[in-house]
Design a protein around this nucleic acid. Structure first.
Lengths: 197, 197
DNA sequence: TAATCTCAGTTAACGGTGTTAATTGACTGA
DNA sequence: TCAGTCAATTAACACCGTTAACTGAGATTA
C-alpha cells in the first residue's frame, strides 16, 4: 500500500530532477551540451530510465518550453492583479518578459529555439503559449477595444519588438552592456505602450 | 606547370561546393541534419577532405554566416546607389532584410543561431557584420545627424524591430500567413522610418 | 519450500556525429 | 629501381539518441 503511494511521489521527484538537470547543464554549458546520458549520470540512473519519463529528447525539451510559458503566464497574471491601468499593465508585462529572459536565458532559448536549442515539436498550437497570447491580447484589448484582427496585429507588433530587443541584447551583450540595452528596452516599450493610445 | 594552375582552381570549386552543399542540406532538412559526412558524400569525397578546407564545422558555419552578411552588405550598398532620400533608403533596406530572410531562411538561421543552427564563433566582432552595422548607421546618420551614441541606439531599435518581426513571422507562419506578416512588417518599418524624422 | 512471475534497472547494441591518426597507392625525381 | 611526396582513404575515438535484450531481487503461487 505505501509502495503505491511512495512510487508516484518518487516518480515525480525523478521526473522533475530530469528537467532540473537538463536546465542546469544548458545554463552551464549551453543546449548543445545537453545529452540524455549526461542527464542520466547526474540523476544517478542509466540513460534508458530517462525514456520512462519522456518519450524522446524532443518531448523533454517541449516540457521545459511549456514550463517556461506557464511561468510567464503566471507572472503576467500576477501583473493583472497588481495593476488596474491597462498601460501600466502592458508595460509591466514587458518588463517581466525582459527579466525572465535575463534570469533564465536557457529557458528563453529553448522556448524560441535559440543558440543551439532545438525542439522540433511545433511551438504554435501549444496550449501554454496560446494562454500567454490570450492574456496579453486581453490586456491590449482592455484599453484598445478593437476587432480581434487588429488586436492580434498589435500583439504581433508588441511581441516582435520585445523579442527582437531581447535576442539582440543577448547577442550583443559583449559589446553593448546589458544595462544599456535594458534602458533602451524600457524606453522603447514605454513608448510602444504610450503610442497605442 | 598546368597542375599548379589547375590545383588552386579546383580547390576553390571544391570549397564552394562544400558551402553550397551545406546550405542545400540545411534548406532541405534543417541545420540539425547537416553533417560533415553528408556534405562529403554529396561532393563525392571522404569526410576528412572537408577538414582541408575548413578547420572545423564551426568555421564552416562561420563562413556561411559571413557570406550572408556580405550579401546583405552588397544589397544595402545597392540601395544607397538607387535612392538618395534617406527615408526611402532605410525603408528599402528594411525590405531587403525581409526578402533575404524570406528567400534564404537557412542562411538567416545560421547568422543568428536560429532553429538548431549553432556556430559558436562570436558573431559580433565579425568584420562582415560590423560592415553591415556601419552602412545602416551611416544611412540613419545621413538624415538624423546626432551623436554616434544616439545613432547606435536608433540602429539597435531598427534592427530589433526588423529581426523580431522576421523571426516571429517565421515561427508563426503556420497560423499567420506570411503575406499578412509581411504587410505588418512593411507598415511597421515605414512608421519606424517616418517617426525618426 | 521451490518454482514462477514481475519489473525496475542495467548492459549492449545500432546507426549516427565531429574529428584525427594511420594507411594506402599512384606519381615524381634521383 | 628506390625513395619520397602527397592526395585521398580507411579506421578509430569518444560521443550522441534510441531501443532490445538481459539481469537480479522481491512477490506470488503451487
Amino acid at each position: 500500500m505505501e509502495i503505491i503511494e511512495r512510487k508516484p511521489r518518487n516518480r515525480e521527484q525523478t521526473r522533475s530532477g530530469i528537467l532540473k538537470t537538463a536546465k542546469a547543464i544548458a545554463r552551464r554549458e549551453g543546449w548543445q551540451a545537453v545529452s540524455i546520458r549526461k542527464i542520466a549520470d547526474a540523476i544517478e540512473y542509466s540513460a534508458p530510465i530517462v525514456y520512462e519519463y519522456f518519450d524522446s529528447k524532443d518531448v523533454l525539451l517541449d516540457e521545459i518550453r511549456n514550463e517556461g510559458f506557464r511561468h510567464l503566464y503566471q507572472e503576467y497574471d500576477r501583473i493583472l492583479t497588481l495593476y488596474r491601468d491597462p498601460e501600466k499593465r502592458l508595460f509591466e508585462i514587458s518588463l517581466v518578459q525582459w527579466e525572465f529572459a535575463r534570469q533564465q536565458p536557457e529557458i528563453y532559448q529553448v522556448m524560441y529555439n535559440l543558440d543551439g536549442a532545438l525542439c522540433s515539436l511545433p511551438v504554435h498550437q501549444s496550449e501554454s503559449m496560446q494562454a500567454v497570447s490570450r492574456i496579453v491580447c486581453k490586456t491590449i484589448f482592455s484599453f484598445i477595444p478593437k476587432a480581434e484582427e487588429s488586436i492580434r496585429r498589435l500583439y504581433f507588433q508588441w511581441w516582435s519588438v520585445s523579442h527582437g530587443m531581447i535576442t539582440l541584447a543577448m547577442l550583443l551583450k559583449n559589446e553593448q552592456p546589458i544595462e544599456q540595452s535594458e534602458q533602451v528596452y524600457r524606453e522603447t516599450m514605454r513608448r510602444f505602450v504610450r503610442d497605442l493610445r
